[in-house]
């Protein structure tokens, strides 16, 4: 691997990281609108409002960057970066295509990915604590509680795949993948995807950022670009969680003509899962904080444990 190759890969990663979340954001604008019988943005950019998010970005950049007087200045200003950058790092280890179609193949890729994903949530905690605002503090507390509850089933579900493949490397897992893993790991996939939704605070698990009760929680005091970075982190998170679910449970680049079109399959599966994320947001009302906890501990954790047991049994029977 020479320098040019590395630069090329990093550039591709950066472009994907900047473009894909915006695509998901635009998709959310449009899908949500049409699911509610509306048209959504129609003016920005001329054709069906394709440049709406660019216009939003320009607007956010023009706004004043306010830091509350009583806020913990450094932590407050650092929080958006802490929320956004982990998702960029996660994408480094996500395989897109077979035969080295990954920016950097890591031996402990799954471990790395899950560890870094957890850091992203810290941004919300930092923002919630440093804002010196009651609503932000409430949002931060709810975020922390949700992180505690959903990190466990997520790890268990991912562990099940690692057990099945016998490796922690993401390209390694995909190399082992067979089509019958799909029904075998389906419960784990459900647990992983739902727990991922909860970690991103996506509806129906958006109690930590409930705009109508605690005014966007940890983000109450943020303005301008820093607020935009938090929003971007949310959409980058959708891309990352969808991509990880696709890679771990839906076979990533596996599909017809995988040798040439593997990256298309990865992107397609990620896009479909992103659509599901938006679909769930439109369809379901927000769960209460206690309902979110109950769902995690009484439904997701037992399901994930059952999946691990099933994986272990099948693994032993096959060997």
């Amino acid at each position: 691997m020479d320098v040019l190759d590395t630069v090329w890969r990093l550039l591709a990663l950066l472009v994907a990281f900047l473009v894909l979340p915006l695509l998901v954001g635009q998709l959310e604008h449009k899908v949500m609108a049409h699911m509610q019988g509306r048209l959504g943005p129609m003016y920005a950019g001329g054709f069906h409002g394709w440049a709406q998010l660019v216009a939003d970005g320009v607007k956010f950049a023009q706004k004043e960057d306010v830091v509350p007087a009583r806020a913990d200045r450094r932590v407050f200003q650092l929080a958006p970066a802490v929320a956004l950058l982990p998702y960029l790092l996660v994408l480094v280890a996500v395989p897109v295509a077979p035969h080295g179609g990954v920016v950097q193949a890591l031996d402990a890729g799954l471990f790395f990915v899950l560890a870094v994903l957890g850091v992203g949530v810290l941004g919300s905690l930092m923002g919630g604590w440093a804002s010196a605002n009651k609503y932000s503090l409430l949002g931060g507390m709810r975020t922390a509680a949700q992180l505690m509850a959903y990190e466990l089933p997520m790890l268990l579900a991912a562990a099940s795949v690692a057990m099945a493949a016998g490796t922690l490397s993401l390209p390694g897992i995909l190399a082992e993948w067979e089509w019958w893993w799909l029904p075998w790991q389906i419960v784990g996939g459900f647990v992983f995807f739902v727990a991922g939704l909860a970690e991103l605070h996506r509806p129906p698990f958006d109690a930590p950022v409930a705009d109508s009760e605690i005014i966007f929680g940890a983000y109450t005091e943020y303005t301008g670009l820093r607020f935009a970075l938090f929003l971007l982190a949310e959409y980058a998170g959708i891309v990352v969680v969808s991509a990880l679910t696709a890679v771990l449970f839906l076979g990533g680049w596996h599909g017809p003509f995988a040798d040439g079109l593997g990256w298309v399959w990865t992107l397609l599966k990620t896009a479909v899962l992103s659509f599901v994320v938006i679909w769930l947001r439109v369809s379901y009302p927000r769960l209460r904080a206690d309902q979110i906890q109950r769902f995690a501990w009484t439904v997701l954790v037992p399901l994930a444990l059952a999946q691990i047991a099933l994986t272990g049994v099948v693994k032993v029977v096959l060997s």
């Binding site: 899908v31 609108a33 049409h34 699911m35 509610q36 019988g37 509306r38 048209l39 129609m42 679909w279 769930l280 439109v282 369809s283 379901y284």
Partner: peptide, 21 residues
Amino acid sequence: GLAKGLAVTLRTMTRRTVTAQ
């Protein structure tokens, strides 16, 4: 009930919008 909710939103997406431009 959850499936019904998903079906409603999906069906609405395929219908014509009511927005007056």
